[in-house]
Amino acid sequence: MKRDFLNVSDLTKDEILEIIEYAIKLKKEPFSDQTLKNKSIGLIFMKPSTRTRLSFEVGVYQMGGQPIYITGSSTQMSRGEDIKDTGRVMARYLDGIVIRTYSHKEVEDLAQYFDKPVINALTDYLHPCQILADLQTIYERFGKVEDIKVAFVGDGNNLANTWLIAGGLIGFNVSVATPEGYEPSGKAVYEALNLAKETGAEIQLTHDPVEAVKDADVIYTDVWVSMGQEEEKEKKEAFKGFTIDKQLLKHASKNAIVMHCLPAHKGEEISEEVFEQFADVIFDEAENRLHAQKALMSLLFK
């Protein structure tokens, strides 16, 4: 039976822990897993990308497969072809699809009509591949991904949504601080709270960054204005006081780390000083996209 990865909760807690451990192994032995040998994987990108595209292209190649990069404008989808029809056609050629797009429903529809694995490489609702790499990075730093507190400070976007669900699923505490009117999706909060009933995770929403980062082990942020929303300059006014800087860090755990999925707008969501202080963590996090996604693909395509 085919498996998709559209949401971090498409995996079990044990599977996520296995992916982290296997990703660390693949980091040392990049060509050791040839699960994708003689397979062709379509990489559909409706949005610009640096880390996601490179990590998936290199990852598919290292696993023996053929990555095929497909821009939205280069397909008939740009002329209105139904994604259901596109999925059924691609199923005749490809062994899997990685898709980065806007609407999460579009990915769900594609997965319904494409009869092989579909991986969500980012939608406006979720960014699950990024979180796998983030969890690997946290594990490398702390030796665990449980019994920790993650504080997300900024816009209640796809990453905030995914962190909430991941915390509820795995059992670590998540506190999300956003300005009023920029809270995470109610759907994501609902799923996180339901998952947390089983794992005991504490899920907190606040409008106070200081409250969110109190005793946090990981402080996470993302750009205030997401891709495709660059014209919303006035939005930045609402985020004054939500910058990750040295003053805010004083309220976190003594050994806390700061993470950022990149690209960063230094001086907005994170100060230049803090970014450089934790640059080794942030760029390890970027590298781990490659390894975590390879471990994910090994699971899905076996």
Rank of each mutant, 00 (worst) to 15 (best):
E273G: 06
E269T: 09
A252D: 05
G167P: 04
K246M: 04
E273M: 03
M259W: 07
L193K: 15
C261I: 00
K149A: 01
L205I: 11
E202K: 14
A279N: 14
Q229R: 10
A216F: 02
E146S: 13
T206G: 04
E269I: 06
G228V: 09
N157G: 11
V258A: 08
G181N: 10
K197V: 06
Q204S: 12
S271V: 10
V210N: 03
S226E: 07
Y182H: 15
K214G: 00
Q204A: 04
L262G: 11
V210T: 08
G156V: 03
L159Y: 03
D284F: 05
E276F: 06
Q277H: 11
I148P: 05
E211G: 00
G200L: 05
G186S: 14
G143C: 12
E269A: 02
K187A: 08
A256P: 08
V189C: 07
I203N: 07
N255I: 00
G143I: 10
A151T: 02
L195N: 01
E180K: 15
V213K: 06
I257G: 10
T206P: 05
V210I: 15
E211S: 13
I170P: 03
G154Y: 04
A151E: 01
M227H: 00
V210F: 07
V258L: 04
N255V: 00
H207M: 03
F172K: 12
P184C: 10
K144E: 07
E232V: 04
Q277W: 01
K214L: 00
D208P: 02
V210K: 15
I282E: 06
L195Y: 00
E230F: 08
F142R: 11
N158E: 09
V176H: 12
K197A: 09
Q277E: 15
C261Y: 04
D222K: 02
V223K: 02
P179L: 07
E180D: 14
G156R: 04
L169N: 03
Y220D: 11
H251S: 15
G168F: 05
F283L: 13
E230L: 00
G186Y: 08
A264E: 07
F142N: 05
A252K: 08
I270H: 08
P184A: 09
K250L: 12
V225D: 07
